[in-house]
Design a protein around this nucleic acid. Structure first.
Lengths: 160, 160
DNA sequence: AGACAATCTTTGCGCTTGCAACAGTTCTCC
DNA sequence: GGAGAACTGTTGCAAGCGCAAAGATTGTCT
């Protein structure tokens, strides 16, 4: 029994042909898509991860967030965030501020330079998302993408 | 002008509300989804990257592939693949074979133990893909997912 | 009050990866 | 044929990340 035969038969343990196609399209397009976003952000001296830090901070009240909250939103380990912030602090885009109420916590705060950096990079990033993802999908496709991944996300958070 | 206002207005440089929703759903679901796949594969002692090496090799003729071809398929740098193979070779799932025709190239070849490992892990991985991705999408959603990312992939390879 | 558990951030360590440099081999073109 | 370019794989180095442990602080329970 060849591997191809095996894929086609036992539908319980293997994917059907169309499921296989869908999965492969998804999993193979992903690295290239992410690489395209990174490449478009690189001229600004930002990685996609750095950019997302700036986005979350810029949307927070007072442009600041507790380290642990920021780490959770970014799906980053505490240590990962500490190191990532080091770079952004060194670049002058973010600074750390001790919390008076709870002396365990540190706030990461967007600096004016950081906001300027984000304002400069955001249009290019948005254009990048449009160009590599939304444009090929079209308006309908974009809407469907949102629906699909909203469902996936809901399912991931649900079953605990 | 608040950030939210700014997002809603200039449609040229910013995303519309529905575009924003779609993009956010996608980009935030992604890390959790990948983490779920990794977690389900971990009991087998495999990372998703390791598993994909085994998949590509198992589908190749004679269960072997040139290093550079394998690296390209995996979207991995040459050095990255060298190091990754080191681990798989040490585990006994893959071995290296010199090419007689072209003495520059090395073949990565799946060993019987490697095929056994894949046969053992594949059903769990397939179940994982079903559980975390395909099931929440449903049959229609799976088909749409395939169409969407086929388009994205085609667009990424095209404009070169 | 006081002991103990929980929370928050940082640091040490190891793993994975990409880039640049290198060495060996093959191809091209004169 | 032979010089130079192109290709293939590996190694040195640095950057990014997670886990475990540590240090500091706060909350809880008796």
């Amino acid at each position: 029994m060849s591997p191809t035969d095996r894929r086609a038969t036992a539908t319980a343990t293997w994917l059907t042909a169309s499921e296989q196609d869908a999965w492969r399209s998804f999993i193979t397009a992903l690295p290239d898509l992410m690489a395209a976003f990174e490449a478009d952000l690189a001229p600004h001296g930002l990685s996609l991860g750095d950019y997302e830090v700036l986005v979350f901070l810029s949307e927070a009240t007072d442009s600041q967030l507790r380290m642990c909250d920021l780490a959770a939103q970014l799906r980053l380990s505490p240590s990962g965030l500490t190191r990532r912030l080091d770079g952004l602090v060194k670049a002058g885009w973010v600074d750390r501020m001790a919390c008076a109420a709870d002396r365990r916590v540190m706030y990461a705060r967007l600096t004016p330079a950081g906001r300027a950096k984000m304002d400069a990079a955001a249009p290019d990033h948005v254009a990048s998302v449009r160009r590599h993802l939304l444009a090929p999908l079209g308006g309908d496709g974009t809407m469907r993408l949102g629906e699909l991944f909203a469902r996936v996300r809901a399912h991931l958070l649900q079953p605990a």
